[in-house]
């Protein structure tokens, strides 16, 4: 599938799709979207890139094994869930900064949790797909 058009398109598609996935992740709390869908979109972006340029190219691009995103994401989700414990609230209580941050909007522990989900989903999807396409 290494056609010129696909190859050229994929180099532009990758950053666009990843940006789009972050956008989806950030708007999740108010409009359709969220960490899960965002993560899936980001992984599709990388899969498209790997189809067009070959797996090795994509791997070089990412620099590290996508599997490392899984523990990182899990930790972020867990920490954002456990953070309320430090101010003597129960596990997973939603905490919010008082003022919205420009561009991103309201920031709270739920957003970090969603970011954790986002990373885990990218890690899981890419690990599975990369492993299968490598071995078969």
């Amino acid at each position: 599938m290494k056609t010129l058009i696909f190859k050229t398109a994929s180099t532009y598609l990758l950053p666009l799709l990843v940006l789009f996935s972050v956008f989806i992740l950030l708007r999740g709390h108010y409009l359709p979207g969220g960490g899960f869908v965002g993560g899936l979109i980001a992984s599709i972006a990388f899969v498209i890139h790997s189809f067009a340029n070959g797996l090795e190219q994509t791997k070089n691009l990412i620099k590290f094994h996508p599997g490392f995103l899984m523990p990182v994401g899990l930790c972020i989700a867990l920490i954002s869930g456990a953070a309320p414990l430090f101010i003597e609230q129960s596990f997973m209580t939603g905490l919010w900064f008082e003022n919205p941050i420009p561009v991103i909007g309201m920031v709270g522990s739920a957003l970090f949790f969603d970011a954790g989900v986002y990373l885990v989903v990218i890690g899981v999807t890419l690990t599975i797909i990369f492993t299968i396409s490598e071995t078969l």
Partner: peptide
């Protein structure tokens, strides 16, 4: 503090 109910359920009400 969320308007997207599905997402709020996922990350907050049923976050666990």
């Amino acid at each position: 503090k969320g308007k997207n109910v599905v997402n709020v359920i996922l990350v907050d009400f049923r976050g666990f």
